[in-house]
Write a protein that binds this DNA or RNA. Structure first.
Length: 428
RNA sequence: GGUGGGGUGGCUGAGUGGUCGAAAGCGGCGGUCUUGAAAACCGUUGAGGGUUUAUCCCCUCCUAGGGUUCAAAUCCCUACCCCACCGCCA
């Protein structure tokens, strides 16, 4: 959420900034609301003041044993005027808030102009895509040959966009989680954290999934308004909701493995084959809470942490900065890491690292106490995938496939797989 | 699932319906003392918003949402959460 003051004092600048996203702010409506808000609020507060002083006087008079009947008569019509004013004010504020809460974050200067993912700008590239001297299979076929990657059984158990893994593939899937968590906690200074996978509306509002993106979520059929998490970002970031932490405690850095559940509404035709786009997938998420001055550096650092995983796995990737038209609602700047998929001869998203400025913190009331001033200030949040496990598995299956149908296991994963160096093709 | 007790400021914890935004303690900040520190002592210290050049002043907030009242932290209803005991249970 943007600072409501910005809508009062710099409305046109805000509108201009948002236009880089292709977002059109209803300037006229906001200006009109603000004008009436001012008048109504002053009126309302004046009436409240009058009620307060009169009530106090009644109290005093009563304490002195005086007759309060005339005082009560005076206050009679005040009550009605006040409740009318309060209702009017509430209506104006509700409409103002509804608009403000649905406005996306302003973008960092360096975010490029653009309308779609085609306009994202490559920042860097790492690794050389391997050249194959045999016909490259996609991960579904590689998995089929190895055995242990089964979409039909998942379809029977549940439906489309789910997978069943068994044997060495299931184990490698788990090994990826362990490897990533150990790296981030052991070498990058993150604390491991375990959180609920079901969250309430306040949490989803805090990170920005609600109120605008409910259709992307799985909602529990229950009268408590609970949802499955679409990413660990939601529970982990909301750890700080309604908190004021000591400045000395910052930065707070969490690494969290969790499953993620996404309805994928509106992506019916896309990535229907394989496990690129699933309703359920695992992810190791990195979340940082930092002082405002440090958030830009923190985004670079965190992105680097995710990149290191790709490098250690020997997976070629590129880093792109998302353009104004493709960047997420809450983000002020986002880098996507895209891994090379030989079967598609292209780079596909495997991590998304974003800086949110104070946007999420304001929604969550997540603050730190400035040691110098003693005053609470909004902290900044930064997060990113480090990495998406399912897609990492896809990338390994494709990039490490062998001519004989076997799979080489990346060296860094071997300790997590009992020293196993390859997975043989299933005997037919 | 049953019964009972609670949710108050950064934290702990008082609070007969009427100067209660709220005692006290801890913590924080400033000071005295000290070579320095600790201890002790003195003072200070909630959050959000409105108005204002600024000071002042004003409003809101004691889990949330309703209600009663001239007046609610305090009374009533609902929801959520926490604690204790019982039952069930991974």
């Amino acid at each position: 959420m943007l600072d409501p003051k910005l809508f009062r004092t710099q409305l046109d600048e805000v509108a201009k900034g948002l236009s880089k996203r292709g977002y059109q702010l209803d300037v006229e409506r906001l200006r009109a609301l603000e004008d009436t808000r001012k008048v109504v609020q002053v009126e309302c507060e004046n009436l409240q003041q009058e009620r307060n002083t009169r009530s106090k006087n009644i109290g005093k008079a009563k304490a002195q044993g005086q007759d309060i009947a005339p005082l009560l008569a005076e206050v009679d019509n005040l009550k009605k005027a006040l409740s009318e004013a309060e209702e009017k004010l509430a209506a104006v504020q509700t409409e103002f808030n509804d608009i403000v809460e649905s406005v996306p974050n302003l973008l960092a200067d360096e975010v490029p102009e653009g309308k779609s993912e085609d306009d994202n700008v490559e920042v860097s590239k790492w690794g050389e895509p391997r050249s194959f001297d045999f016909e490259v299979k996609d991960h579904v076929d590689v998995g089929a040959e190895l055995g242990g990657l089964d979409f039909e059984t998942a379809g029977k158990i549940t439906g489309s966009r789910f997978a069943v893994m068994t044997g060495s593939i299931a184990r490698m899937h788990r090994a990826l989680i362990q490897f990533m968590l150990n790296t981030h906690t052991g070498e990058h200074g993150y604390s491991e954290i375990y959180v609920p996978y079901i969250v309430n509306k306040d949490s989803l509002f805090g990170t920005g999934q609600l109120p605008k993106f409910e259709e992307d979520l799985f909602k529990l059929r229950d009268d408590r308004d609970l949802y499955l998490i679409p990413t660990a970002e939601v529970p982990v970031t909301n750890v700080m909701r309604d908190e004021i932490v000591d400045e000395a405690a910052l930065p707070v850095k969490f690494a969290c493995h969790s499953p993620c559940f996404r309805s994928e509404a509106g992506s019916y035709g896309r990535d229907t084959r394989g496990m690129i786009r699933q309703h359920q997938f695992e992810k190791v998420e990195l979340v940082q809470f930092v002082k405002p001055d440090n958030s830009a550096a923190a985004l670079e650092e965190l992105t680097g942490h995710a990149e290191l995983i790709l490098q250690q796995l020997g997976l070629p990737y590129r880093k792109v900065i998302l353009c104004g038209g493709d960047i997420g609602f809450s983000s002020t700047k986002t880098y996507d890491l895209e891994v090379w998929l030989p079967s598609q001869k292209t780079y596909r998203e495997i991590s998304s690292c974003s800086s949110f400025g104070e946007f999420q913190a304001r929604r969550m009331k997540a603050r730190f106490r400035n040691a110098e001033t003693g005053k609470p200030e909004l902290l900044h949040t930064v997060n990113g995938s480090g990495l998406a496990i399912g897609r990492t598995l896809v990338a390994i299956l494709e990039n490490y496939q062998q001519a004989d149908g076997s799979l080489e296991i990346p060296a860094v994963l071997q300790p997590y797989m009992n020293g196993q160096t390859s997975i043989a093709a299933a005997s037919k």
